[in-house]
Design a protein around this nucleic acid. Structure first.
Lengths: 361, 361
DNA sequence: TTGTACGCGTTATCAC
DNA sequence: GTGATAACGCGTACAA
């Protein structure tokens, strides 16, 4: 069992022990061919004896790049997960085992994008740096930006100007945010088209006439989905609502309109939800009030997260190519840093996934 | 749309523009109270104008810590995912949409541990650095170790001495590896007990007498599971095998013994698989040969991954508190760095999860 | 082939 | 309250 080193071992320590200069030590690791085999062995041995591990910070400083790519999430984690006080280990374990892996919390779409990001970064031999912060004033994202060669971000409470700020120094790509005239790279999907497909299915296949949209327009992509919803209804000659039927905010009083409609027995034929997570919440609410899906009302989601395949009924939804989005982000970041140009925005295709919630079951 | 900065803006640039010294710039960000409000404004304005983002490397170098925690995976990713050549974006997207989110690949147990790690790191305001590498000779892990304040790793092709090496410099915790007399921190579950519970269930509840264990003993935890298996059989007065019934290696010829048993119609009553992934593969193989589960043979897994809840039949298995393991790792790492002592190894509890594959359906 | 010396961008310890 | 200045650990021209 090796002794831990008291203080960080540096090139100087290794050099001294090996009886060479620090340059030789550095060369031994970076350009082994430049040093005579015997010297090399000497250095490697000394390094091993001393438990030498080169400082990433120092290397990053010296050659200007950290070889790391950053991925930043704002408040994607549910409040109960993030701001929870430090619980005892026992409590954590019991809580987790009791919950037995709640699919409603993980994996969410963010996690799928992240996985693609990780895989591609790994393929390119780069490490990934994960950051997250809650408040929009938080400078966490700036901190992260200072440590990576490129940064990918999820939309959220992200102060726009803050992003523009960091975007001046390192390439930045933002997910699920429609193309804009800013300095950032955008990766989105064809939200309008996807929702149109969904509505066509509900109308053509199931003959629904009264179709409602639920979702919070604040999020950038949701706006596009609602626009697609409106366009689809118009194309079918159906009345086009000015606003979503209901919106969700994370309060006790959420989904008020829907609750009222349930109570009054005045539900639309179908509920087009802006996200799978919302759709699942809606399913819960409906079940809770004895409303049957899809018999009494059809429901659709958006994203294609795993939880939607475990619900009852399973969710009819639109699948986004999340992993590919993550991979693409890495490519944009590395290519850009290497001088290769990329379009300022990518719009990827999606695919409708038929589940039981639309009535196809 | 702001101009990107040609070269990295530094404290010097900001200082010059604000007409102050670099010390004042630094203070403005780190100890705002120490500088006069007017000066502060001056500096902040200059920083904003110049798109200043402090260098993480320089900061890390200067104060000795990066505030980042590392998580390293060896070859957890499936070959097809990692060493794939650079495919075109279109190919990637189509491939992904056709696959529609293959739960067999994600999320695996590694991902669940990672999530816990991320959540706790976030709670503590630390960023996470992800690394991975394939070969055991690879120095990637050392690279990562040099950039973080603490490192957590998954077992794998990890050269033991390599880990000991990095362990001398920064605290290291290793998952799913039984306690050893090394310098590392270990986090495991009660593998023996868990498998014992499983076997008890198969024997007591379902009356199975001929129970077989499938798994590759190479992985550290698997050995403990097999030991628990042997102990359980002994306790029931049943014959105790010296070795696993079959092992899996990632070759075409894998699961040979099982294949033969299927062909000869000489299957055991129950197949206790060392992991869920193996159990799912076994389910596939059995189905492929027309063997019904659990009617013809019972199958159990280990881990409690999500894919096991989506299979048909669903998997009877043992759930590990993955997220808690990840969280615990972060606590060990940060506490250790702060001078607080932690036990060199933790053994967490598990829970049996009854699915349909054991016959309880 | 190896050694010397400087720069990378911050932080922090001093004086002022 | 603010300004010089010395680390921090490594990479690399340049010199030897």
């Amino acid at each position: 069992m090796l002794e831990p080193v008291a203080q960080r071992t540096t090139v100087y320590d290794v050099a001294e022990r090996a009886g060479v200069s620090i340059a030789t030590v550095s060369y031994t690791f970076r350009q082994p061919d430049r040093v005579r085999p015997e010297t090399r062995e000497l250095v490697l041995r000394a390094a091993r004896d001393l438990g030498y591990v080169p400082s990433g910070s120092a290397r990053g400083l010296a050659n200007g790049r950290s070889q790391a790519l950053g991925l930043y999430a704002f408040d994607m984690f549910l409040p109960s997960d993030l701001s929870a006080p430090r619980r005892s280990l026992d409590e954590l374990v019991q809580w987790e085992l009791d919950g037995l892996g709640n699919v409603r919390r993980f994996p969410l779409y963010v996690d799928e994008i992240q996985r693609g990001f990780e895989l591609e970064a790994r393929r390119l031999g780069r490490s990934v740096m994960l950051g997250s912060g809650a408040s929009r004033d938080s400078l966490d994202s700036i901190d992260l930006a200072g440590s990576v060669d490129g940064l990918a971000i999820f939309p959220g409470a992200a102060a726009r100007d803050l992003l523009e700020h960091v975007g001046r120094g390192v390439p930045v790509v933002i997910f699920s945010s429609p193309p804009m005239n800013d300095a950032l790279h955008h990766i989105t999907v064809d939200n309008e088209g996807a929702v149109r497909d969904l509505v066509d299915h509900l109308v053509d296949r199931h003959g629904h006439r009264s179709v409602a949209f639920l979702g919070e327009l604040a999020a950038p992509d949701i706006g596009a989905r609602f626009a697609g919803f409106q366009a689809a209804l118009a194309a079918h000659g159906l009345p086009v609502p000015e606003e979503p039927f209901d919106t969700t905010v994370l309060t006790e009083d959420s989904l008020r309109t829907l609750r009222d409609a349930i109570t009054s027995g005045d539900l639309p034929d179908a509920l087009v939800c802006a996200t799978d997570q919302l759709a699942l919440t809606v399913l819960d609410l409906l079940a809770q009030h004895g409303v049957r899906v899809p018999d009494d009302v059809a429901v659709t989601g958006f994203d294609g997260i795993i939880a939607g395949r475990l619900s009852d009924p399973t969710l009819t939804t639109v699948r986004q190519p999340f992993a590919s989005m993550g991979r693409l982000a890495v490519r944009i970041l590395t290519d850009t840093a290497a001088g290769l140009a990329h379009p300022k925005s990518y719009v990827l295709p999606t695919r409708v996934v038929i589940g039981g919630s639309c009535g196809c079951g």
